[in-house]
């Protein structure tokens, strides 16, 4: 394994960079999109809620590979030219956003109805009440499951390998195919994924503790 690491250091490092970049973009993107759809799902406007519900149900029940291939093949053919990295990152963002929407929705719904009513009763708008009262309480509840989603996201970023997105898994596959040292290569790749996921996991735990004090 160490020879694999030593001989392919720069290749694996560049793969790690692409994986990190895709993960960060998808993390921010899916958090924003997911929260948006969570808000749609709990909207009192029936049609908005239905659209939110359909999005979440459709997206989270389709394999990540299919969503990603759609962006890799269909979008460039009919809409705009995007490369494998972009297609993979968009696919990953969309896919994860559905799970985040569900997590955030559950978090918001677990904040007692009275909190919203209390805020509305002094004349706060829906948005003011959400931002000042409900969200801060929902975040505490949502952080542990959100942490799981984020770790899954980093691992799921290996989808980029299928669309030649130059990520860690893609480089790993190529090294395995040229050296035929499959086991050691994937062991090295696994180790590098740990380097990404462990700090994330640790940070989410830290956040969990920090928010629980307040």
């Amino acid at each position: 394994m160490f020879t694999i690491l030593a001989n392919n250091w720069s290749t694996l490092l560049s793969g790690l960079g692409y994986t990190l970049m895709a993960s960060l973009i998808a993390l921010v993107g899916s958090l924003v999109i997911g929260t948006l759809f969570a808000l749609m799902e709990i909207s009192t406007y029936r049609w908005v809620a239905i659209i939110g519900r359909i999005y979440v149900e459709v997206v989270r029940n389709i394999p990540l590979l299919v969503i990603t291939m759609a962006f890799y093949v269909i979008v460039p053919t009919y809409v705009v030219q995007i490369d494998g990295f972009t297609a993979g990152t968009i696919g990953l963002t969309i896919y994860t956003s559905a799970f985040i929407a569900e997590t955030v929705r559950a978090g918001i719904e677990s904040v007692a109805v009275g909190q919203m009513e209390g805020a509305r009763s002094v004349g706060m708008t829906y948005t003011q009440a959400m931002v000042n009262i409900v969200f801060p309480q929902a975040i505490k509840i949502v952080i542990p499951p959100l942490g799981n989603q984020f770790i899954n996201l980093v691992k799921n970023s290996s989808i980029l390998a299928f669309v030649a997105g130059f990520d860690l898994m893609y480089q790993g596959k190529i090294i395995a195919n040229t050296t035929f040292n499959t086991f050691d290569t994937y062991l090295a790749v696994g180790l590098l994924y740990l380097i990404l996921t462990m700090p994330l996991s640790y940070y989410m735990r830290h956040l969990e503790k920090k928010w629980n004090v307040a």
């Binding site: 009275g114 009513e117 009763s121 009262i133 309480q137």
Partner: peptide, 11 residues
């Protein structure tokens, strides 16, 4: 409005 269960902002 004053509620039965107070509805003070917990945060």
């Amino acid at each position: 409005m004053v509620f039965q269960h107070f509805n003070l902002y917990a945060n």
